[in-house]
Nucleic acid binder design. Structure first.
Length: 375
RNA sequence: CCAGGGGUGGCAGAGCGGCUGAUGCGCGGGUCUGUAAAACCCGUUUAGGUUGGUUCAACUCCAACCCCCUGGA
């Protein structure tokens, strides 16, 4: 039910096509984050569909806490629950082990969380994570892993790699037991900035065998040297014919750098969070984008590639003024007013429109990247 | 015109006879990368209707005036 094809290669970059039970995804692609089954900011599945979003990412840990995988399953799995007929990925909760920090206890068998919602204890093991993910019913599922914080010393990273490898094997075994050919399981490479540990981690995962491979770790680890280099540190040890997923990478310049280093798949909360926090992306420079993709040596400079505009809450006092088609602030390029028109929505409320704007910017960014690679 | 209530930063709104007069909003700046985030951090420069009086000391007490709100004629 799954197939991964490389349509074309441009240097290390790949134009790809991923077939899933819920349709195909053209890569390189970006997964918008819908942690609890919805993109924050009053964005509906219908909005995503209209804008050409191909795939979204939900979170096992969060859905397990609320509303619970049984509820989601009863609602027809994530696809039914979200009213979304296209592909979905679920992250395992591995990242929460890292980001929830002090509320988490890690042992060799799994992790125990104190829920930030009510303080109740929840336990996640490699097996239970996969079981929950089976019920959630996403197309692509991630194994439970151990993500290290930025600057972690070698010893800690080595331990995380070790743990991640063991858990990966257990996830794979559980996935086989479930016998679900409607879900593709990935492996997650850890190792931070230590090349030999990345190699070791990748080798262990290849040994187990996964449909796709992710580059995990805190983003600042990956960018510690440079994005291109940081990504290649891992991709060089990954199989050619499997999807490569850089987890959590999201600045447009990061995406461009990673694509030309051979990454096919991304996700990030940034476009959506930044929209809610008043940062809008616009004026994508397609010529610069093409130049960067065609010349891997060319430095990718954010301010040459696109523009970031700040929007304060006061801008929303008079939506008419900010979002009127005549306002030069938003009519250039992939404008809010364009999205407004696209969505045919009446009075925009709060940050919804800004979120839609940024989503659309990313949709266009990925489309342009594919278009350049296809040329 | 009569009776009662009130005038505090850009706005809303506490408290107090002396110490940096809260707090919220707004505004400005910053942070954000597999979402504990429509969040968080920093800043916002001579803010007490007016004029007098009491007092060592008044935004706080008193008087007059100006203005606003409510009720009445």
């Amino acid at each position: 039910m799954f197939r991964f094809e490389i349509i074309k290669k441009v240097g290390l970059a790949r134009l790809t096509k991923l077939t899933t039970p819920h349709g195909t995804v053209e890569g390189p692609f970006f997964q918008f984050v819908a942690t609890q089954g919805a993109v924050r900011g009053q964005v509906f599945a219908e909005d995503l569909e209209k804008m050409g979003v191909q795939i979204v990412l939900a979170n096992t840990y969060h859905l397990h806490l609320r509303p619970g995988e049984d509820v989601v399953e009863a609602g027809g799995g994530l696809h039914g629950f979200m009213q979304w007929s296209h592909p979905v990925t679920t992250d395992s909760g591995g990242y929460q082990v890292f980001s929830l920090g002090k509320n988490v206890k890690l042992d060799s068998d799994g992790v125990t969380f104190a829920s930030p919602i009510d303080g109740n204890k929840y336990r996640l093991t490699p097996e239970s994570a996969v079981q929950i993910e089976a019920k959630l019913g996403a197309d692509i599922i991630m194994p439970l892993d151990v993500c290290t914080p930025y600057g972690a010393d070698r010893e800690k990273v080595a331990a995380a790699v070790e743990q991640t490898s063991k858990w990966a094997a257990r996830c794979k075994a559980e996935w086989e037991r479930a016998g679900k050919d409607t879900q593709a399981l990935y492996g997650i490479v850890q190792g931070s900035i230590y090349k030999d540990l990345r190699e070791k981690s990748a080798a262990a995962l290849r040994e187990i065998g996964f449909f796709g491979y992710s580059i995990g770790g805190e983003m600042r680890d990956v960018t510690a040297t440079s994005m291109d280099e940081g990504v290649r540190m891992t991709t060089q040890f990954l199989p050619e014919d499997a999807p490569r997923y850089l987890m959590g990478a999201g600045m447009p310049e990061d995406i461009v750098r990673a694509v030309r280093a051979g990454v096919d798949q991304f996700d990030c909360v940034l476009p959506i969070r930044n929209a809610r926090h008043g940062k809008i992306y616009r004026n994508l420079n397609i010529k610069e984008l093409a130049a960067c993709l065609q010349d891997p040596e060319r430095p990718v400079e954010a301010d040459k590639l696109y523009e970031v505009m700040d929007i304060t809450k006061s801008s929303f006092k008079d939506d008419q003024q900010v979002f009127s088609p005549g306002n030069p602030v938003i009519t250039k390029d992939y404008s809010v007013s364009y999205v407004h028109h696209l969505m045919r929505c009446e009075a925009p409320s709060g940050f919804r429109l800004v979120v839609l704007h940024n989503i659309y910017f990313y949709v266009q960014l990925m489309r342009e990247i594919r278009a350049v690679l296809d040329k």
